[in-house]
Simulated assay, not measured.
Amino acid sequence: MSPSILPARLARSAGSITRVQGIEAGHYTDTRRPTGCSVVIARAGAVGGVDVRGAAPGTRETDLLHPTNLVERVHAVMLCGGSAWGLDAASGAVRWLEEQEVGLDVRYARLPLVPAAVLFDLGVGEARIRPDAAAGHAACAAASRAAPAEGNVGAGTGASVGKVFGMEHAMKGGIGTASVTVDGITVGALVACNALGDVLEPETGQLLAGARTADGRQLRDTRRALLCGELPQPVLAGTNTTIGVIATDAQINKAQAHRLAVVSHDGLARAINPVHTMSDGDTLFTLGTGASGRTLGMITLAAMAAQVTAVATVRAVLCARGITTAEGLWLPSACDLDDRTSMVRQAHHERFGNRSP
Rank of each mutant, 00 (worst) to 15 (best):
V77Y: 09
R130N: 00
A155N: 09
L226E: 09
P7V: 01
Q233W: 00
N354P: 01
A44P: 00
R145E: 04
I272E: 01
T286G: 07
V52P: 00
A257P: 01
H66R: 09
I272Y: 01
F120M: 12
T289W: 04
M171Y: 14
V235S: 04
G22C: 04
P234Q: 11
G26C: 14
P232H: 07
R107N: 02
S4W: 03
G22K: 07
R43T: 10
C193S: 15
E327C: 03
T286L: 02
T177P: 05
A261F: 01
S160N: 13
P67L: 13
V77E: 08
N253S: 08
D280K: 06
G54W: 09
R73L: 04
W96C: 02
Y108C: 02
T204Q: 07
Q206A: 15
R145K: 13
V124D: 06
L268A: 06
L284K: 09
R33C: 12
R110L: 10
E230Q: 15
P3H: 05
G86D: 00
L104F: 10
R220W: 15
E72P: 00
Y28D: 11
N69A: 12
A214K: 05
G154K: 04
V20G: 12
E99G: 11
T177H: 03
T186V: 12
L87Y: 01
G82F: 09
A302G: 15
A155D: 03
L284M: 13
V317D: 02
A320Y: 11
L97M: 07
P3E: 04
A133F: 01
R33K: 13
G54Y: 07
K254A: 01
F120I: 09
L268I: 11
P34T: 00
A305G: 05
D336L: 09
L104Q: 02
E350K: 13
S13Q: 10
W85Y: 15
N69M: 14
L10W: 08
M304L: 15
E99D: 08
G45C: 08
D30F: 02
E230N: 11
A320C: 10
A225S: 14
A93E: 03
M298G: 03
P67Q: 10
D88Q: 10
A147V: 06
A89L: 10
G197N: 05
L260I: 06
D215V: 05
H66K: 06
M298H: 04
G197E: 09
V124F: 01
S292G: 09
T341C: 02
P7I: 01
I129C: 04
I23A: 06
T241F: 06
Q251W: 00
S83H: 02
L207H: 11
P148K: 08
A269R: 05
S264T: 09
N273D: 14
I185V: 15
V47E: 02
G26A: 13
R351F: 13
D249I: 13
A306L: 05
P232F: 04
G288C: 07
D338F: 07
N273C: 08
R12S: 11
R224L: 15
P57H: 13
